[in-house]
Design a binder for these strands. Sequence first.
DNA 1: AAGTAATGCAACCGCCGAATG
DNA 2: ACATTCGGCGGTTGCATTACT
Length: 188
Amino acid sequence: MRKPSCDINKNKGTWSQEEDQKLIDYVNKHGDVCWSTLPQAAGLLRCGKSCRLRWMNYLRPDLKRGNFAEDEEDLIIKLHALLGNRWSLIAGRLPGRTDNEVKNYWNSHIRKKLISKGMDQNNHGLNHKMISPLQNSFMSNSSESFGLKEISKTSKTQVENYGEISNASSGEDIESYALLDINLELSL
DNA sequence: AAGTAATGCAACCGCCGAATG
DNA sequence: ACATTCGGCGGTTGCATTACT
């Protein structure tokens, strides 16, 4: 039996200011941390996963917070049409945004918007036969030209399996896909 | 003003793959 | 080769706030 990832006897729920400060102080002092040992070392009654989540989603100094700009929203819609619910990949294209934030924003705002416009929330009316090769192209280039953090094999495999694997990544084909209103230059 | 419904978002849960022993 | 641990991810839950009656 696998043991629970988090100790049920530990704190749960909203983080207090004191807890946040302890976490910030510890990470600032030690830099890269081992999340599994951090709670004890930092004097926190939380599990490592909870600490990591808190840091990644809310305490990191490079986070933007606040409302999404219109261009950010557009980009999310386009990337979602391309990648599906790969929130971490989508968030990777949006500096200062987290996967959780993007996911929440999608579920609470964009999805409703698309539904109210009568658009398919999954592919937004785009033809998957056209999207799939583009996905491959995106994924194969992503870690280099797009400056993405390394994409896990999992994600890559899942995206590859998402549609037909085609050999349509040639320059010519890509050009035709550019007809789609998906600007993968992404000025990103 | 009080009660209820809807909404937004922070946090948790469970699963997976990679790394390690 | 196998078991275990860890970090990371997407889906879901539940609480706090806001809107409505």
